[in-house]
Amino acid sequence: MEWLNTILQGILLGGLYAMFAAGLSLIFGVMRLVNIAHGDLIVLAAYIALVTVQALGINPILSLVLVVPVMAAIGYGLQRGLLNRTLGDDLLPPLLVTFGLSVIIQNGLLELFTADSVKLDAGTVEIESIAVGGGLAIGVLPLIQFALAVAVIAGLQWLFYRTALGRAFRATSDDQPVAQLMGLNNAHVFGLAMALSLAIVAVAGVLLAVRANFDPAIGPARLIFGFEAVIIGGLGSMWGTLAGGIILGVAQAIGAQLDPGWNLLAGHIAFLVVLALRPEGLFPKVDRMS
C-alpha cells in the first residue's frame, strides 16, 4: 500500500514536470530555440505570483489570472525584442543568449528578494485530502495541480491541431521561408509561441511555489526536469510529454521511498535508461514520410 501511495504521489508530481516540459518543447518545436532560461522564468513567475499575492491578499491559485497574462506579455516582448535577433542557421547564439538571460534573472531575483526561500500559502486547501479507500488519501492540492497540468496539455493539443494559430505554428515549424511566403510573419508567430510558452511557465511557476519552498537559485534544476520529461516522452508529442513527466515523477518518488537521498538520482537514471534504449523517446510523434 505504501508503494501504491508512492506511485500515486509520483504521478501527481509528474503533472508539474510535464508543465515544465510543455513550454520548453513548444518553442523548440516551433523555432528550434533551446531556452536555457526556462527554469529561471518559472522561478520569475513564482516571484511575480508572490508579489501579487502579498499586494492583493488573494489566493495564489487566483493570482494566475494576473501572472499568466504578465508572463505571456514578457514572453512576446522578449522574443521580438531579443530572441528573434539570435535565431538563424546556428543553434549556438540563442543558447548563449538564453544562458546569459538565466544568469541575469537569477541575480536580479537575488538582489530583489534575497536568497531566503519562500513559499506561497494556498490556505486550508493545502492540507485537505480525499480518502480513496485502503488507507490511501490524495491531497486536494496535488490533485488540482495534476488536473491543471492535464488541462494545459489537452488545451495545447487542441490549439495545435484544431486552430488557425496551431496551423501557423506547425507550418512555420515545417518550413519558415515558405510560411513567410504564405503571409505568416515569422517574427510575430515566434513571439506568440514564446508568449504561450511563458503562459504555461506562469501556471507551472505558481504551482511550484504553492507546492514547495523556492528561492532564486532553483531554476536550473527545473530546467533539467523539463528537458528530461521532454526526452523521455519524445519530442513533438504533447501527451508523450505528459507521460514523460509522470515517468520522471514516479521514478523520483520511488527513489525517495528507497532512500531519501536517491530522489533526484532515480529520476536521472530513468532518463538515462530511456535515452540509452529509446533515444527518440517513448512516444515520438509518428514521423510522416517527407
Partner: peptide
C-alpha cells in the same frame, strides 16, 4: 503576399506535417 502576389515554390514545398486541407487553409489565412 498581402498585396496580392503568390508564389508556387520550386519543388512544391508543401508543409509536411499538415494535411492537404490545412495546407490550403494556411495559404488562405
Amino acid at each position: 503576399v498581402s498585396r496580392g502576389i503568390a508564389l508556387v515554390p520550386e519543388g512544391r514545398r508543401l508543409f509536411p506535417s499538415l494535411t492537404v486541407e490545412e495546407n490550403l487553409l494556411v495559404g488562405g489565412q
